[in-house]
Nucleic acid binder design. Structure first.
Lengths: 124, 124
DNA sequence: ACTATTGTATTAGATACTTAATACAGAGAT
DNA sequence: ATCTCTGTATTAAGTATCTAATACAATAGT
């Protein structure tokens, strides 16, 4: 069973997955990525789809391509840190907007987050 | 300029917008919705697309259709409250998973939310 | 030199989404 | 009765996405 849903293009979802792995440090600066074909196999998608995702990441500067030896995570740790911060800011802002739009106040949101964090610990 | 992006089907985005309005109480229980054609006009989408969104909402029980007089928000306030809670839980959980997956700890997340809440007040 | 592996490009076809243009059926207003 | 508004259904066409099947170029390893 695939991790992808049908609510957004797969290449965007895959791009997001890869991006998160890099930002989280799961794949380190300078580290070599699996080949386009391998990633496609692992994820159960077409190589073209995988390449499309990787091309997008390269546009953001997260990935460097060496024409014949493969693709690598940028060695620019500062850039990664910056993008991680940007990403987090966007995620938080988007979250706040969503919650506010269905009628929650700032303090309520905060309480809600704490409550679910605590519940999550139990459920893990 | 439309409020919709190209990262997901418009009917899903419109569905989400309508849903949020109902959950937020912006459109009240029992209140009549604009006609399919009017909604489509307002949102700048095709009537078929609007109808597709509304059909989905009816499946969830948020909307009741009277064949010739129009569509109405359910009068079941309890149901709305329940769905609002479900929606909020899903949003929070999804948010926490996202932040955790890029390497933030629970306390860090909380601090981040507070920080951006404060910043938002200034920016509004 | 040869082979395997790398990224990249091309072409074709299937499906989903969206728009467009109509048409039909039922109820209310006049 | 007629008109208008409501939801609903149908058909066609255009676009984006995804898969599939290849092919090519360049390099690393042997």
């Amino acid at each position: 069973m695939s991790v992808f849903n049908n609510k957004a293009p797969i290449y965007l979802q895959l791009m997001d997955e890869m991006k998160k792995k890099i930002l989280a440090g799961e794949i380190k600066p300078g580290e070599k990525l699996p080949s386009v074909r391998d990633i496609a196999m692992d994820q159960g998608v077409n190589p073209n789809t995988a390449q499309k995702a990787l091309t997008q990441l390269e546009t953001e500067g997260l990935i460097i391509t060496n024409r014949t030896s493969g693709k690598f995570v940028t060695e620019n740790a500062e850039l990664i840190k910056g993008l991680k911060d940007d990403f987090a800011k966007a995620v938080v802002l988007n979250f706040l907007i969503k919650m506010t739009s269905i009628g929650f106040t700032d303090p309520e949101i905060l309480t809600y987050v704490e409550k679910i964090q605590k519940a999550r610990i139990i459920n893990v």
